[in-house]
Nucleic acid binder design. Structure first.
Lengths: 206, 206
DNA sequence: AAAACTTCTTGCCAAATGCTAAGAAGATTC
DNA sequence: GAATCTTCTTAGCATTTGGCAAGAAGTTTT
């Protein structure tokens, strides 16, 4: 263990490295600018089952998920909980409607595992939007990407069968199946856990 | 018919009035600012069945629908067409992903009836975003509202039954049923026309 | 270690939805 | 106005999905 130059030479110069990488992937910009944006975020950890947002409150922060798994859910009229999003790293976790419109949220956002996240409060987000064009563009791209994902998801819910949605998730985000209970995945796919169990059995036989 | 003061006193000073009203409802601002934004739009009419966007092309315009009905659809692997949005006036009609990311669209956007629309080309949109903070804020609010609607719709697809979605549409946008074929509405609700027909029969008996 | 709880699967039956086909009614075209 | 096309409904049957309940397996708590 003599040669540790790499570690020594890079003594966490960018603790927000995962944020920087993600920003660059979303909207290419000079490293310098991306670093400034990323430096506005603060690190936190979440315990398993901890909430970052609860129904009825106004969302005051934007989150970037570095490690761990998070879900967004609400309750249907019968009191069953319905998961409509599962976040896996690296990704932004936002209730855009509540955060930017300053209205109470309809969602509960909860850690499914221990998580490492980076957060930025609403006020600092706004201040940076006004002060820094790159930050503004980054925020706009975040809205656009969120829009793209939501629409893709909605089209999939209309067009694809439950089995197709399952198979697509297994292909694109296999890691979710190792960290998130199947009953939550079932809810996310728009079916019951019973149904998912059947689909998995039939799927395995192919 | 002597007293026509109202018409004479307001000789279409704001031909884009419907655009102004809609902008103000979305993001309250001085009439003067809203008028400037609205004045950037140009009026067009669409013939029934005319396309404003076709799969594979890059969307180069933003649209505001003043009158008439428009749908967005795509084809599933079997070649069936799947309607995932029906626009009724007044509303913006955008393929946000294609327009702002400059990538080919996956959607076909088509007039279902004769339409009156207001359009603005991408370049002018961008120029105004940079030149005019209110225009920028308006664009951002458009993204946020689109996001809100998409998420509400997705949650409804997961949480609600087909009958609940039908009943909600009948309640919130009854005019659609007078102008759009039921087979297209069925597709939009995520069911077949056969199924919608059954639901309507049972619904009428209640 | 025992107890309590959660997760996952399975079986059974009911309900919802899809598929295909046929016909009636309405709209459009010639 | 006749012919053609589209839309809408209905029927019969197959498939998918849900609701409930039970039990096995795994986790967490005490």
């Amino acid at each position: 263990m003599i040669e540790t130059a790499q570690q020594q030479g890079n003594p966490q110069k960018f603790p927000q490295e995962s944020v920087i990488v993600f920003i660059q992937a979303m909207l290419p910009m000079p490293l310098e600018k991306a670093s400034i944006i990323a430096s506005q975020f603060e690190r936190k950890t979440l315990a398993k089952h901890e909430f970052v947002l609860q129904e009825g409150k106004v969302c005051n922060e934007s989150y970037f998920l570095e490690s761990g798994y998070i879900r967004a859910f609400a309750f249907d009229p019968d009191g069953n909980d319905v998961t409509f999003n599962i976040f896996s790293p690296p990704s932004f976790v936002n209730d855009i409607s509540s955060l930017f419109r300053r209205v109470p949220t309809k969602e509960n956002i909860q850690a499914l595992t221990e998580c490492a996240i980076w957060t930025i409060p609403y006020e600092r987000l706004q201040a940076n939007f006004h002060a820094m064009p790159e930050f503004r563009e980054f925020g706009r791209m975040m809205l656009i990407m969120s829009n793209t994902h939501l629409k893709d998801r909605m089209i999939s819910m209309i067009r694809d069968t439950a089995e197709e949605r399952y198979s697509a998730l297994l292909r694109t985000k296999p890691d979710i199946f190792q960290h998130v209970p199947l009953k939550i995945i079932a809810s996310y796919l728009g079916i019951t856990d019973t149904s998912l169990s059947r689909i998995r059995r039939e799927f395995a036989q192919k």
